Each structure stands twice: as C-alpha cells, then as structure tokens.
Simulated assay, not measured.
Amino acid sequence: MANHKSAIKRNKQNALRNARNTHIRSTMRTYVKQVRQAVAEGNAESAKTALERVIPFIDKAATKGIIHKATASRKISRLTRLVNALQA
C-alpha cells in the first residue's frame, strides 16, 4: 500500500480513471453488440439507428485515449460496411 501522500493521491486517481475507462469501454462494446444483433436479425432500420448511436461513442473513446484512433476507425468502418451490406 502507498505510504506517501503523493502515492495515495496517485492511487485514488488511477482508481477513478480505471472505473471511468472500464465504463466507457463496456458501454461501447454493448452498443457494438446491438448493431451486430440488429444486422443478424436483418433489421435494417434498427441497425442504422444503433450505428448512428455507436459512432460518436467510439470516436469519444478514441479521443479520451481508451482505445487507439486506428482501432476506432477500424471498428466504425467494419460496422458501417455491415449495415450498408444489409441495406443493399
């Protein structure tokens, strides 16, 4: 356990950041699953609305440094291709 004041503060900061990052990552994964589930069901309208909700969330996660920007771009690209293939 931390003994110095600065180490105690650092532990608190790390715990808060970890909780925030975990929440954002988990929520992002849930939204991605909703898009994939709508595509699997063949529901184009639901898939499109879910995609519109997840794209800004993925971008925000990349901006905050929770995921890499290339990972965010790849996820958005693949999900968009899935939804577009369903609509075509």
Rank of each mutant, 00 (worst) to 15 (best):
M1S: 14
M1T: 09
A2R: 04
N3R: 14
N3F: 07
H4D: 14
H4Y: 05
H4W: 01
H4C: 10
S6P: 07
S6E: 13
S6F: 04
A7W: 02
A7L: 07
A7P: 04
I8V: 06
I8Y: 00
K9H: 11
K9G: 02
K12P: 03
K12E: 13
Q13S: 09
N14S: 12
N14I: 09
A15Y: 11
A15I: 13
L16S: 10
L16R: 14
R17S: 07
N18V: 01
A19K: 14
A19S: 15
A19Q: 15
R20N: 12
N21V: 05
N21L: 08
N21C: 07
T22A: 13
H23C: 01
I24Q: 04
I24L: 05
R25M: 04
R25P: 00
S26R: 12
S26H: 12
T27G: 01
T27I: 00
M28R: 06
M28T: 07
T30Y: 07
T30R: 08
T30S: 11
Y31F: 10
V32F: 00
V32T: 05
V32A: 02
V32N: 00
K33W: 00
K33S: 06
R36I: 01
R36M: 03
Q37S: 06
Q37N: 06
Q37G: 00
V39Y: 02
V39I: 04
A40W: 04
E41V: 09
E41Q: 12
E41W: 05
G42K: 05
G42Y: 01
G42Q: 06
G42A: 05
N43D: 15
A44L: 07
E45C: 06
E45W: 02
E45Q: 11
E45S: 14
S46Y: 02
S46M: 13
A47T: 09
K48E: 15
T49Y: 10
T49L: 11
T49K: 12
T49P: 10
A50M: 12
L51R: 04
L51C: 09
E52Y: 13
E52F: 12
E52N: 14
E52I: 13
R53L: 13
R53F: 10
R53Y: 15
R53T: 15
P56M: 09
P56V: 03
F57V: 08
F57W: 05
I58P: 03
I58C: 04
D59Y: 09
K60M: 15
K60E: 14
K60L: 13
A61I: 04
A61K: 04
A61T: 02
A61F: 06
A62T: 10
T63E: 15
T63W: 13
G65I: 05
G65K: 10
I66K: 04
I66W: 06
I67V: 09
I67A: 01
I67M: 07
I67G: 01
H68A: 11
H68R: 10
K69R: 10
K69D: 02
K69V: 03
A70R: 15
A70C: 01
T71L: 09
A72W: 08
S73Y: 12
R74Q: 09
R74I: 06
R74H: 10
K75T: 08
K75L: 11
K75Q: 13
I76M: 11
I76G: 08
S77A: 08
S77T: 11
L79A: 01
L79P: 01
T80H: 05
T80S: 12
T80Y: 03
R81T: 03
L82H: 03
L82D: 10
V83T: 08
N84W: 04
A85M: 02
L86Q: 05
L86C: 03
L86D: 05
Q87V: 15
A88Q: 14
